[in-house]
């Protein structure tokens, strides 16, 4: 037996947001009596950490501590419309909507503070610790909890804001396909290193190296989760997954449980080495692009190409089962023998 090693490359881009646009998201922000800021959404957190990221967007925009932000989602009676969490749109669309809403709320907050401090609102700034203060002064300041109390009980104002983000819908020209399908594009390049057992066709992915350009990592730990988990899914798609293992010849033997529906387990994962590049998107929240979907894509062809590099078998049909690799090897050997 021989383990034969190979390296493969793939580079991809991925559009943020629903294809052709027309997918709005809204956000509402309001202050509670003691200076909590509630971000109200109907957006769905699939586990990517949307709640955490939008809280960061709100805190950053309002200029207040993260701890003062509460994210309330997803209830259609209270939260304004969101198209949904898909198409790598959550952080981009909802983040943008939250920023717009938080800016409006911040303007009111500063105006209330200005009236309390008897200064012009334009001369005020937030310091991120919970205070609104006069620029250049360490004395003249007011805590947001007092701003909120004043707004509620003395000034009779609501510290609140409304936000929406919409990429206008585009309609393709039927004859040419001319269209404006995307908001921005994230990028990735994957290098896969594999070992192929030339007697059994079993492919082991040893290492994945990934460079991701993601606009801006709003939360690098959450972005890391997305890219690592996504690359795992790409590996899983590449080597294992199929609801119809014998397509197109047969629809029988479709897996019906997690035992038969194969995905790499914790003992089957490669070492991943990744790096982020940031080219902020002009239309992204703090420059962020959508990255959730892109990360599964480059590993698949990178692995196929690495197998070719290792043993000369061009895999053209997913998933790359040991059988397909071995049949390819057998054909090559027969060709050589003939």
């Amino acid at each position: 037996m021989a383990l034969r090693h190979g390296r493969g490359y793939a580079a991809v881009n991925y559009p943020t947001g629903m294809n052709l646009g027309g997918d709005p998201s809204q956000a509402l922000v309001h202050a509670t009596t003691m200076g909590g800021f509630v971000v109200t959404l109907s957006s769905v957190d699939l586990g990517q950490g949307l709640r955490t990221v939008v809280a960061q967007c709100a805190a950053e925009t309002l200029g207040i501590p993260l701890e003062n932000v509460i994210v309330d989602t997803a209830d259609t009676d209270t939260g304004p419309h969101c198209m949904g969490t898909f198409a790598s749109r959550g952080t981009h669309r909802v983040g943008n909507a939250v920023i717009v809403a938080a800016r409006e709320a911040r303007d009111v907050m500063l105006q209330v503070a200005a009236d309390e401090l008897e200064v012009d609102a334009e001369d005020l700034e937030t310091d991120g610790t919970g205070f609104v203060r006069l620029k250049g002064s360490s004395e003249k300041k007011i805590h947001i909890s007092e701003v909120a109390l004043a707004a509620h009980f003395r000034q009779g104002r609501t510290i609140s804001g409304r936000g929406i983000f919409l990429k206008e819908p585009s309609t393709p020209v039927p004859e040419t396909g001319e269209m404006d399908p995307d908001s921005c594009q994230a990028h990735a390049c994957t290098v896969a290193e594999v070992a192929v057992d030339d007697e059994t066709g079993v492919v082991e992915v040893l290492r994945l190296y990934n460079a991701y350009e993601i606009g801006r990592a709003l939360n690098p730990a959450l972005a890391t989760q997305q890219v690592e988990g996504g690359a795992w899914m790409g590996l899983s798609h590449a080597l294992f997954e199929s609801t119809e293992p014998y397509y197109p010849h047969s629809r029988e033997h479709g897996p019906v449980d997690f035992t038969e529906y194969l995905m790499p387990g914790p003992a089957d994962i490669p070492a991943q080495t990744s790096v982020f590049l940031e080219r902020p998107a002009g239309n992204g929240p703090f420059g962020a692009k959508g990255i959730g979907e892109m990360t599964a894509n480059a590993p698949i062809p990178a692995i196929a190409n690495a197998v070719y590099d290792a043993v000369g078998v061009r895999l053209t049909s997913m998933p790359f089962t040991p059988e397909k690799v071995l049949r390819g090897l057998d054909e090559l050997r027969a060709g050589r023998a003939g």
Binding site: Y212, L218, F276, P280
Partner: peptide
């Protein structure tokens, strides 16, 4: 994941308090 700030240096403006943090 580390961020390679050598790329697109000029475009990465912005000084943030909460954004960019692994909260």
């Amino acid at each position: 994941t580390p961020i390679d700030t050598a790329y697109f240096k000029g475009e990465r403006a912005g000084d943030f308090a909460v954004i960019g943090s692994a909260v």
